[in-house]
């Protein structure tokens, strides 16, 4: 189900990780992911996992939550894993089955690539689980603010993201309701060939679009009634400020990156 996707779901709390500046969290998440992509052996991944585990503990998140976030990706994971396994050119055969030769390099590539994906998702999940979507967009908006000089619509993009995040759960719920209503009138969404199934989607999409437009219209009016006039002269409830906490987190992440780098250099 779509509801199982952890990505983009905020897990409310008051941990040090929750209290960090979203800009710093964004930067450090990117740094962490870059770090993980530089890793090239299992010890490195173990270190990356250890670091992630530490952060998750500090954040007070159930680790199972992160694992669940990976679940929707299982097909992509298996697919890329097999793709790498079969097609990555390698030179050291370890297993031969008829026309197919499994090479050491392909296996390594497949495993590492899958691990990277998993870490990418889990790392981002820590960010989204500990940062409310509002803070996240705030952070993004402010990180992108220098770009407004080149007419980059930073505020508008952030506002769009906020609204999307606010309305996605509503529209999912609505889809479910409309689908049920059509099923109650004998519609069949499960059987038939591709064309028939695509046709069965029309009764679903029309009301969904109508509703999305109505909501957009209502929301625009509500925003106007509350004096919305774009990003200029706007203040924010939370002025973002870097604190000692952020410095500490940055230092910790820097240490992690150093260790990873050193490990790759001298042990790997």
């Amino acid at each position: 189900m779509l509801k199982d996707i952890t990505l983009g779901q905020y897990f409310p709390g008051d941990s040090p990780v929750h209290r960090m500046d979203p800009r710093m969290k964004l930067i450090l998440t990117i740094a962490y992911i870059v770090g993980v992509f530089l890793v090239s052996d299992l010890l490195g991944y173990a270190l990356a996992l250890a670091f992630l585990y530490l952060v998750v503990r500090v954040a007070g998140l159930p680790f199972g939550y992160l694992v669940r976030g990976v679940k929707p990706l299982r097909f992509i994971l298996v697919f890329t894993f097999l793709l790498n396994l079969f097609f990555f050119p390698g030179t050291t055969p370890i297993l031969s089955l008829g026309f197919f030769t499994l090479t050491r390099e392909a296996l390594q590539k497949a495993v590492f690539f899958a691990l990277r994906l998993v870490f990418l998702v889990m790392g981002t999940s820590v960010l989204t689980l500990t940062t409310s979507p509002m803070q996240l967009t705030d952070g993004l908006e402010r990180l992108m603010r220098p770009l407004t000089r080149f007419h980059f619509p930073a505020h508008e993009l952030a506002m769009m993201m906020t609204i999307a995040l606010r309305f996605i759960p509503l529209l999912l719920e609505e889809t479910d309701k409309i689908q049920k209503a059509q099923m109650a009138r004998g519609a069949d969404f499960e059987s038939g060939n591709l064309l028939m199934r695509a046709k069965a989607m029309v009764p679903l999409l029309v009301p969904l679009f109508v509703s999305a437009f109505r909501r957009a219209n209502d929301l625009a009016m509500a925003m106007e009634a509350r004096c919305y006039r774009g990003g200029e002269h706007r203040t924010r409830l939370r002025e973002l400020k870097y604190t000692r906490l952020d410095a500490l987190a940055a230092a910790a992440t820097a240490c992690f990156l150093l260790v990873i780098f050193a490990e790759g250099r001298f042990l790997g």
């Binding site: 905020y10 209502d218 509500a222 009634a225």
Partner: peptide
């Protein structure tokens, strides 16, 4: 100030 009909369509933030 104005409060509208549909509670879902006037709350902007998450």
């Amino acid at each position: 100030g104005m409060v509208f009909q549909n509670p879902d369509n006037q709350i902007v933030a998450t």
